[in-house]
Design a protein around this nucleic acid. Structure first.
Lengths: 342, 342
DNA sequence: GTTAGCACTCTATCTGAATGAGTGCTAAAC
DNA sequence: GTTTAGCACTCATTCAGATAGAGTGCTAAC
């Protein structure tokens, strides 16, 4: 599609612009050394690249900046990932070495590392409930009317929810029901739990307890997990140092969206396994038109498990971020795998 | 200290400045109507007020703006609180009426209301562990080396922590220990728990289990609550719309601090019961020199329980915010009291 | 096909003048 | 003695016009 030379020039422009955030002119490309042509020749090619939609010109007498299409080409034809600096690698090793017990701690820590290494904003999704199974269930009465339901998953995640006790249900009813659940359904994947309750222990409850309907309602309430995936943000204020967000209006649109965890979950989750890059308007959400979002997935025992992402301006250090995400997602998978064996 | 007229003029200036964020001149004060003197007279008084340290002048030919001391005087001599708008009151009633089961839900919801009503940033501290007592304790092994410890407090708060199982400790050891704790120490205030473990059940454990040292270590690990008070932020992006934070540098200092939950906890907790106003440099932390922080405490069954706060520029609508905080803290106390009775 | 040269365009920057908000001081009026 | 009108003065903001400089597009020569 693009000639060798056009490709080189486009690359050089994107590279320069990522560094400087200023429109790039023909002269500065010529002086870089890696494109050994005169400014005039480069100008001709730049005009062609603009016509093809890879470059844009803020105004007639300015240099060129990459368009979304230009970034896309750059990313798709990028040179193989650069190895990371030694000091960065050290951080990853720490992540694996550190005795972090809970999955959430690993995820949170990874997010902090990611943000501080890239100077962008990191968005990580915690474990997907879908892939974990029930370890333990408990119903603990607090007073006459409310109880707290506690669910522990196979990965040690603890979810709790305060629920109302339906009238007529006694403490011993609740205890018996919880015991039944633990005895029969421990190890069942979370996403099948509700169905299995009806099919396998409904009858049992009916036989032993008076208030079948109420107890089932109570279980239903207890197992509605409000937020099934936790969102961990880090480095949100890194957004402020990007010159493209000097404009407070644009900045606010993005930061506002970062507070909407359900939307974030949706945006990150739409990805399949592996690394994905969404540039500018490739993002579904309006607020991200000036941003690029790069995501990767991490896994536990081979099962896809959660997502880690970096949000920054479209003028992003793609090579560095993709390399970092790749390594970090692997490091996380390594840190998590083999700990909660079947 | 200040004459009647000086006080009136200072009040008018602060009022005007809070509304406009622009230095206010003698003419505009004279035209307001509530200070019936000529601009010249007002100018003289303003010069005096500046000499006394209540006002400042950005430059010679500009109007005056209140100094921290000026704000302080304004707050201390403020007219009695204005009644809130009917629509705002409705929100409070909703808070009380809504069937929010868990304490945390009440706190979180209150934070959202607070931020949206004031257009500032709300910072709320969840229940202080100090004032709750132990309801239930559980140690659940996940695999050979790790277990999850779950603590439920009298208010239904659930804390969990993943801990390493010391070598030699068996599942039945852990179960027995947890049962012992529940039998002997249920109802004991959280802040006395550690001491009581040593004094009351240490011997018991020593008698029944082989690995006394290891078990005590395990309990110790389990009960170290990393973050004892949760911090709920809402409306952080409201900071962006304040003209005093047009300067990204200043903005970043504040937003960065908002991400440091431990520091926030410390800053809010330093207050005693009731409403407190910290203006500009009255805040201990450097990052808040351009901010005012207003806090109030809420309680459960009369016991002081947590703190709610509003952070904004020193040019803050003190009357409105103080009134709102006062009512909301009462509404929260009402919504929480009598639910987890002894 | 490549490049040197040049006219042209457009932004950013600087200058100086005009504007206007606001002050401080003095002297007159109350 | 207190208040106010009047006036000279200060300083930030705004605007227009001039200038510099970066960069382009086109043409013609290599």
């Amino acid at each position: 599609m693009l000639s060798e030379r056009q490709s080189m020039i486009l690359n050089a422009i994107v590279d320069d612009y990522i560094r400087s955030a200023e429109p790039v002119g023909s002269r500065s490309i010529s002086k870089r050394g890696d494109v050994a042509f005169s400014p005039a020749t480069i100008r001709n090619e730049m005009a062609d690249l603009e016509e093809l939609g890879f470059l844009e010109q803020p105004h007639t007498s300015a240099g060129r900046i990459p368009s979304n299409k230009g970034y896309r080409y750059y990313v798709d034809h990028m040179a193989p990932l650069k190895p990371l600096k030694a000091e960065d690698l050290k951080l990853f090793k720490q992540l694996a070495a550190e005795k972090l017990n809970a999955v959430e701690e690993v995820v949170q820590h990874a997010g902090t590392i990611l943000a501080s290494m890239t100077n962008y904003t990191s968005i990580l999704l915690g474990p997907e409930m879908f892939n974990t199974s029930l370890k333990h269930f408990q119903l603990l009465p607090l007073n006459e009317t409310t109880a707290v339901a506690i669910i522990v998953t196979s990965t040690g995640e603890v979810e709790n929810k305060t629920v109302s006790i339906p009238p007529g249900v006694s403490a011993s009813d609740m205890e018996r029901t919880a015991n039944l659940l633990n005895a029969k359904l421990s190890g069942v994947p979370m996403h099948m739990l509700k169905a299995r309750i009806y099919s396998e222990i409904g009858q049992e409850i009916q036989r032993h307890a008076e208030h079948y309907e109420q107890l089932m309602k109570l279980l239903d309430d207890s197992l509605v997990s409000g937020k099934d995936q936790k969102v961990f943000l880090s480095g949100t204020t890194n957004m402020l140092i990007q010159p493209e967000f000097r404009d407070i209006g644009k900045l606010k649109t993005v930061l506002d969206l970062l507070e909407e965890t359900p939307t974030l979950t949706r945006l990150l989750n739409s990805e399949q396994k592996g690394i994905h890059v969404r540039i500018g308007s490739e993002n579904i959400h309006q607020a991200f038109v000036n941003c690029s979002l790069i995501t990767a997935t991490y896994s536990l025992d081979g099962e896809s498990f959660g997502t880690i992402g970096i949000l920054g301006p479209t003028r992003m250090e793609y090579a560095k971020v993709i390399g970092t995400l790749d390594l970090l997602s692997r490091a996380m998978s390594r840190a998590l795998t083999g700990r909660y064996g079947p």
